[in-house]
Design a protein around this nucleic acid. Sequence first.
DNA 1: GGTATTTCTTGCCATAGGGCAAGATTTTAG
DNA 2: CTAAAATCTTGCCCTATGGCAAGAAATACC
Lengths: 193, 193
Amino acid sequence: MLEPHFLLNVFPSNQFSPEEQELFIEHFVRITVKKGDFLLKEGKISSHYWFIETGIARSYAIDVDGNDISTNFYSVGDIVIDWPSFFLRNPTKENIQALTDCVCWQLDFDTFQKLFHSNEAFREQGRTTLVGSYFALKSHSIAMITDPAKDRYKKLLQERPLIAQNVSLKQLATYLGITDTSLSRIRKEIANE
Amino acid sequence: MLEPHFLLNVFPSNQFSPEEQELFIEHFVRITVKKGDFLLKEGKISSHYWFIETGIARSYAIDVDGNDISTNFYSVGDIVIDWPSFFLRNPTKENIQALTDCVCWQLDFDTFQKLFHSNEAFREQGRTTLVGSYFALKSHSIAMITDPAKDRYKKLLQERPLIAQNVSLKQLATYLGITDTSLSRIRKEIANE
DNA sequence: GGTATTTCTTGCCATAGGGCAAGATTTTAG
DNA sequence: CTAAAATCTTGCCCTATGGCAAGAAATACC
């Protein structure tokens, strides 16, 4: 029995016609990435984005003191994209690295533009996805102000268990805005509750 | 001598044809807002956005403990929009309030959609503006982790002096993720440098 | 112009989380 | 299978920032 194409989850039939599905799918390229490989490196202009079929990835920025700060994590079904670099055609300040071997579906900027300006449904979905990322970022950003570190970690555990359980302490900690030492203590506290 | 229309700054002639400029401008409505009035209230679905011709505004969210957290400030030339509520048609969690009397140019969702799907230049600009907001939010969010409060305040002073000098201590402080007490002390330290 | 209200400053002490370093544990790689 | 490297835990003490409350200053209002 033939598996349905992974990208049908991304372009589901309740939102896209069969013709649209076929059109979009034929423009994506399947790539595989080894653990540790980079999808994007600081200083480059991002010319692609990806949907993850299998695996986990992380984006991070390097601050003035050389510390590595996780900005996001990506797992199955997620879009992996550096929005500003991809759309503003700027050199990025972020790195995106595979934390495990990954299978991804890749689209390049020019192809994206063609689809974006020619197909209304694609356009609406693109905009919705971007706004969704914006909303997630804002929620995280507000939580950093209002919630104590332990609550932020608990939320991550609940909302993204796959991430919380498969990413190293250090990398999770910087995403939560704390040190690995503190996160270790928080885990201990939670274990004792 | 006739003043050029304010919106020509928003749709400059190096990016838009005279026909496009006229098309866009005729769809915007000029509104005035009194100090203290709300452009948007928590729970509503945002159906408009605005460009500020004169005045200052602030958006804020109320956290679980009832504290008011500033999420952004807006001054002359800025777009005032709740991206998620406007595009996802969700009830918003934010409030947007005029801090001074304001003159704004307003566009409604349906008109926006019509222009967005019919005009490529409008679409490109809309996307660029949204990505710009995303980038600003991400920068602020990373700074909250990597920079001490004093540096964050100095950056605000430098990048948005009009805001830093015209918004109350309390409202600035929550935006920076600290208390008004701490910001007061930071100001004192800076004054003594 | 004077009173009420809001905003800002400051002191005192409390606390979340950080810095460092040693040791324990787990993972990686030959 | 074993050694090296990476990751995680823990102790000790430190620092940035918070909480509260009183007084000072600025602003709004009649």
